[in-house]
Design a binder for these strands. Structure first.
Lengths: 167, 167
DNA sequence: AAAGATTGTTGTTGACGACAACAATTGCTG
DNA sequence: CAGCAATTGTTGTCGTCAACAACAATCTTT
């Protein structure tokens, strides 16, 4: 925190200071100081970036990260109940209802009444849903390449390794 | 965090498993498959965990991550305009309005009308705000220690290094 | 002085997490 | 076996947050 730009002075002078050693807060030279070194802050910014890139990269198919994760899990584990999917992805089952409403409305996913437990629904991808998921995965792979370009291939892998416990 | 991995394995005498076409899954054995290897997913889960720990660790002082970042930047750069703070932290200036309303209502931050540019406000910490921020930083440091315990000290540093470009 | 840009503000929209309540159904226990 | 507790899907509310849009007041530019 011992950055030189710390304010002993309290005058604003942001507009057009005399070109000198006067502090210029004008541009992107604002010191974050203590914020650097906070993992949460870096993670937050990075996640923002990632989600935006994901959304942009998959904009043509109109799929958001959460929708993608839901379809991926269902595709890999057909017949799961909503509860199981929600628990596995760490989302509320109340929230999953809306997600599935949307995906089902687009004929990508179907809820099949389970015979084993008549409370629950067995979730499956529709045939077009499976085809769509394959395309989503291709686009998601492109998105991953964007990440690799951004932070470096080996850094991305190191990151995945560090955070493997959170999946 | 979700903590979906709990001991269902000790449960005995389940209903007859996997007899028909639909496979039954225990909660623990659901494969994420393609989701593993997606940086965004790991980051999302990790950020959730971090924010919850931050909120919990600073619950006694009722400060959330964004509020903390705002106060930190103002404390390190007194006199900044709202626009400058918003741009530096990557938050909407519309959102910053509410954040400052709250912080100002708690007498932690004050908006001083700038004489240089009468549209803008020069942001400062109040005296109690400065004292409070010092305590917040102590608690935030404790939160960082929780992260280090979670992923390992060296992993946390590696992570900070990888994501340094996003601050 | 007029036109255009910036700053703070208000408001809206939508995604999202956290809860609470509820009906239907299942499981457990006495 | 009956009855009560737990689970599942659903609906609804609340609060946070990002992304826009519009606006008045105020610079800046021409």
């Amino acid at each position: 925190m011992a950055n030189g730009a710390m304010g002993t002075e309290t005058k604003a002078g942001r507009k057009r200071p005399a070109r000198g050693k006067t502090r210029r807060h004008d541009a992107d030279e604002i010191g974050l100081d203590a914020l650097v070194g906070h993992a949460g802050y870096a993670i937050r910014r990075f996640q923002l970036w990632i989600f935006q890139d994901f959304i942009k990269t998959l904009a043509a198919v109109d799929i958001r990260p959460t929708q993608y994760s839901v379809m991926t899990v269902i595709g890999a584990n057909p017949g799961l109940s909503q509860m199981a999917v929600a628990k596995r992805l760490g989302i509320e089952r109340a929230r999953l209802v809306h997600l599935l409403d949307s995906l089902e409305g687009r004929k990508l996913v179907k809820r099949v009444k389970s015979r084993d437990d008549r409370r629950s629904h067995a979730l499956h991808l529709t045939d077009p849903g499976q085809a769509a998921l394959r395309q989503f995965k291709r686009l998601a792979a492109e998105h991953e390449r964007h990440i690799a370009e951004k932070i470096g291939k080996e850094n991305r892998e190191k990151l995945l390794q560090i955070l493997a416990g959170f999946t």
